[in-house]
């Protein structure tokens, strides 16, 4: 079982990495000449873009209610991602170890924000355009959150077994899989999510930097600086 899970992990990881590398290579391949020459990005643009990305500022400008849910979702996801690094790092860095309490809060905020987003889009605002792919992904996230919470509070798994198994994954020494069914389910959902991650997770920050640069330049397109 441990070997099967390990192979599943490597396959999903390879699928994720290869897919993204191919996408990134395709961004630059055989590009036609451009009207606007290559530009230098100023420190101001970099910092503003960073704020745009970290605060999802463009979303805040168009829909502050949805922003609340989306920002909470993304922030919780980042916290949980970072805190989960403790399973693949040995020794665990102090900064990761110190995320225990924020991660406990994020573990509840994440499903709550997903529910909030769903209610806003489907019930309150009744959005005319709903991406079935996004909703499938949000559904998977919800299942992953719930299985994580169940594992934490109802059917605790042996954390030492899990750490042993996950360390085996990253050191290419396939170990025995933990016996907890909840863990197996949680891990399986993680693999499915890994293979289904949307292309925007890497592309959107780049587009936001470009947009910030464009916004900065627009007033000077037909006016002298």
């Amino acid at each position: 079982m441990g070997l099967v899970l390990s192979l599943g992990f490597y396959a999903a990881f390879l699928f994720f990495v290869a897919g993204y590398l191919a996408r990134m290579l395709s961004w630059a391949r055989d590009a036609p000449p451009q009207a606007v020459p290559e530009r230098n990005i100023s420190l101001y643009v970099c910092l503003s873009a960073l704020v745009d990305i970290l605060l999802l500022r463009r979303l805040l400008r168009v829909n502050d209610v949805l922003w609340l849910g989306e920002w909470t979702f993304h922030a919780s996801l980042v916290i949980l991602f970072l805190s989960h690094l403790k399973y693949i790092l040995d020794p665990v860095p102090a900064i990761i170890a110190s995320m225990e309490i924020p991660a406990r809060v994020a573990a509840w905020l994440l499903p709550a924000s997903l529910l909030f987003i769903g209610v806003i889009k489907l019930v309150i605002e009744k959005k005319p355009y709903i991406s079935s792919y996004n909703f499938m992904l949000l559904g998977l996230m919800m299942v992953s959150c719930v299985s994580g919470l169940v594992m934490k509070y109802s059917f605790p798994a042996d954390l030492a077994d899990i750490k042993h198994f996950t360390m085996g994954l990253v050191t290419f020494h396939a170990g025995i899989s933990p016996g907890s069914l909840t863990f197996l389910f949680h891990f399986f959902i993680f693999l499915v999510i890994l293979m289904s991650l949307p292309t925007h997770i890497f592309a959107a920050p780049l587009t936001m930097i470009e947009a910030r640069q464009r916004d900065d330049e627009l007033p000077y397109l037909m006016h002298e600086k």
Binding site: W27, A28, L59, V62, L66, P128, N134, T199, H200, L206
Partner: peptide
């Protein structure tokens, strides 16, 4: 499409806003 436009195609989150 320019590289930026190719990235834009991938960047859309399909949020529908």
């Amino acid at each position: 499409l320019s590289p930026s436009q190719r990235i834009e195609i991938d960047a859309c989150t399909q949020c529908g806003e």
